[in-house]
């Protein structure tokens, strides 16, 4: 659970950093996308790897959730939590939101099923116009709302996920515990801020076509 999760976290961070190139204009982003496409073997290895990591994470999560549900067959009538955070108690729910969002996101911007409008356009340099696609997409308030919601789900998930994974790996030391405890919320905040910045920048016309 922790290892597959951490793998996905690393991907999410690089995904966000890559996309931030949208602020450097279409040349940079489209060039970056093209350079990824120039290495098909690497790209597909990464994609398959990522998918299997995600699949593994989901299977483990389902197993764990059922096991934990079984551990308390009769629920409390009244419940007050003293220690467990909201994020930690809603990992299954936030995970589900995230899964639905990722499916939508893939269909939307990778497979171009949802909005085929800009699927095959090329930019001036003959690269696929990823930049244009993003700018087009995030002018639609519904798409923006969906993406922002997905990001909130991601943020909630990561808040507990990162710290929890570190603890599973046994990273525990009185001197560093504050660091480990802060890791989850910090990573979550940075990733969400980065991603939401892109979406809102387009929506409010800071980044234009």
């Amino acid at each position: 659970m922790a290892l597959s999760g951490l793998g996905l976290v690393i991907y999410v961070i690089f995904h966000m950093l890559g996309n931030l190139q949208v602020f450097e204009g279409s040349h940079a982003l489209n060039g970056y996308a093209a350079s990824l496409r120039d290495m098909p073997i690497l790209l597909w290895t990464a994609r398959i790897g990522l998918l299997s990591l995600a699949a593994l994470h989901i299977v483990l999560a389902i197993q764990l959730t059922f096991r934990n549900r079984r551990a308390r067959p009769v629920a409390y009538a009244v419940r007050e939590y003293r220690q467990a955070s909201f994020a930690s108690r809603t990992m299954a729910a936030s995970g589900l939101v995230l899964l639905l969002f990722i499916i939508f996101h893939l269909l939307h911007l990778t497979a171009d099923v949802i909005d085929p409008f800009s699927a095959d356009r090329l930019d001036a340099e003959g690269h696929r116009d990823v930049y244009g696609k993003i700018v087009h997409a995030f002018q639609n308030p519904f798409i923006v709302a969906l993406y922002v919601a997905g990001q909130l789900g991601l943020g909630l998930h990561l808040t507990h996920a990162v710290t929890s994974s570190l603890q599973t790996l046994g990273l525990e030391h009185a001197a560093f515990n504050r660091l480990f405890n802060a890791a989850g919320p910090t990573v979550a905040l940075l990733v969400v801020l980065g991603n939401v910045a892109i979406i809102l920048a387009v929506f409010f016309g800071i980044v234009r076509g």
């Binding site: 096991r67 079984r70 551990a71 929890s164």
Partner: peptide, 10 residues
């Protein structure tokens, strides 16, 4: 014994 797994809350 059928205990659940640790949720790593702290």
């Amino acid at each position: 014994e059928g205990f659940g797994s640790c949720g790593n809350h702290r």
